[in-house]
Design a binder for these strands. Structure first.
Lengths: 117, 117
DNA sequence: CTCGACCCTGGAGTACTGTCCAGGGTCAAG
DNA sequence: CTTGACCCTGGACAGTACTCCAGGGTCGAG
């Protein structure tokens, strides 16, 4: 798949895809004419990247775990494990948000929201 | 309170506090010698700033709502309202995380985590 | 052969959020 | 009066994540 299609299917810009390739987040073969050729897995991979990013990971961190995965024979299994870790992280974040919410509820109810807690 | 104390009590660096003042996130009176003099409310305000930042607001956005609040006679009431909005936002974020989690659970369970969904 | 849609590279520029530093002033204690 | 801890300004620099552009190549349709 060429860059335009990948960009469209992931909602990223071509420049962003090129940027991701430069930073090692993504690898592409090259067609004889020099055009990038992405495998179909690039689409879900980029979705994963966006997920991890939303969870607060930097692109560098994501690239690192991606590199570990790359070429591993049990890549699917490892990625499943990664996803399970992300799920645990989501549970943590959710708990943090719940705590924050409780704090805000309390502050909103009190007459003095900025009082030191 | 001078900048050093505020920095220590909020865990920020002096430079960060000065940066926040420059960007309008924070206002300070000046002592006759030119030193910044922060009111005690600056401490919980900065805590709020960090909270809002963690929820994905840019400093500019935070400064804007802060400016709306500033000088209002019903500042406490308005801030309570803001906090209620933040709570709604937290609920949204929590829901997003739940959806993401469900997706990841499904992917992790399937043998092929990167298959297009 | 030309046109338009697509692709390439290299490099500059942007926004945000800091962080560091030089050069210099203030002030209380000893 | 000196010393050390504190404060000031202005400006350079950094890391992250893009975004845009100039200048130019590729390719299928008409």
């Amino acid at each position: 798949m060429r860059i335009g299609e990948l960009a469209e299917r992931t909602g990223l810009s071509r420049d962003t895809v090129r940027f991701y390739e430069r930073t090692g987040l993504l690898t592409a073969r090259r067609l004889p004419n020099g055009y990038r050729d992405f495998p179909p897995e690039a689409v879900p991979w980029l979705r994963y990247v966006r997920t991890a990013q939303a969870l607060g990971f930097s692109l560098a961190e994501i690239a690192r775990t991606g590199a570990e995965l790359d070429g591993a024979p049990d890549a699917a299994e490892r990625l499943s494990e990664l996803l399970r870790q992300k799920i645990a992280l989501i549970d943590e974040r959710t708990a943090e948000l719940a705590a924050l919410r409780a704090d805000l509820v309390e502050r909103a109810a009190s007459g003095c929201p900025l009082a030191p807690s």
